[in-house]
Simulated assay, not measured.
Amino acid sequence: MADPVVLLSEEEVARRVAALAAQIAPAIDDDTVAVCLLTGGLWFASDLTRALSRLGRHVRFDALWLASYGDERASLGRCEVRADLQRPLSGRTALIIDDVIDTGLSLSEASRLVRDAGAARAFTAVFASKPWPTPRAIVPDFVAWEAPARYLVGYGMDAAGALRGLPYIGALD
């Protein structure tokens, strides 16, 4: 596998996470449940919840494991729930966190599941928003970076399970 072309350095990723936390903090409270979409959202969710904590927002944490890509580079067109929510959401605000929005399928399904679980409000936050030629099912509430239409890796994004752990965001073209 070729080395990725660096698009955002580790330092720039950290700056964007801190800036996004500053936008999100006034919209939520300490009873908010941060819902990380596994697997890719784990890196961003970890950094974002710590950044929110530095701003005095100590959110609760939960995760949804959704799969719509498998090891493919394109969405399979359906979303499978591999692990559901564990924390009660009834009457609470939920902050759904994912690494990237491409087709919008996973984020839309997560939003539906969170609402079905009784969340009073559901916000969505993604690190990267990729351009899409047709309307998505959902528009994220908070976006750290408007990404180019390239195959992204690093910071949770992968190529068949590899390169998720890169501390920067790169492209494989």
Rank of each mutant, 00 (worst) to 15 (best):
A94Q: 07
A18F: 00
V33W: 04
L95Y: 09
A160M: 00
A122L: 03
P133D: 13
D116S: 13
L48P: 03
A120R: 15
D84G: 14
R136T: 07
A171I: 08
I24P: 05
R150M: 08
G104E: 09
A19T: 07
T134G: 02
S111G: 14
E10A: 15
R82W: 08
D141P: 09
L38Y: 06
L85K: 11
D102L: 10
A67H: 10
A94F: 02
L166E: 08
A21R: 01
P88D: 11
L64I: 09
V143M: 05
G70E: 06
C36S: 13
W65R: 13
A122V: 15
L42V: 14
L76Y: 00
R112F: 05
A67V: 02
P131C: 03
G165V: 00
A119D: 01
A120F: 00
A149G: 11
G40Q: 06
V59Q: 03
D62G: 10
T134C: 01
T103L: 12
L113W: 02
D71P: 10
A18Q: 15
R82N: 05
A171S: 15
I169E: 00
V139F: 01
K130C: 08
G118M: 10
L95N: 05
P135V: 05
T32Q: 03
I96Q: 02
A34M: 08
S106G: 05
L172R: 10
D47V: 03
A149I: 04
A110K: 02
L52W: 10
S53Q: 14
A18E: 15
R78V: 13
R16Q: 13
T39C: 00
E109H: 12
G104M: 07
L163R: 13
R136Q: 06
C36H: 01
Q23P: 02
P133H: 09
T124G: 11
R121W: 01
R164L: 04
W145T: 04
A2G: 07
S111F: 02
Q23M: 12
I138D: 08
T32D: 07
L37S: 03
A144E: 03
V17Q: 05
F142V: 03
D31E: 15
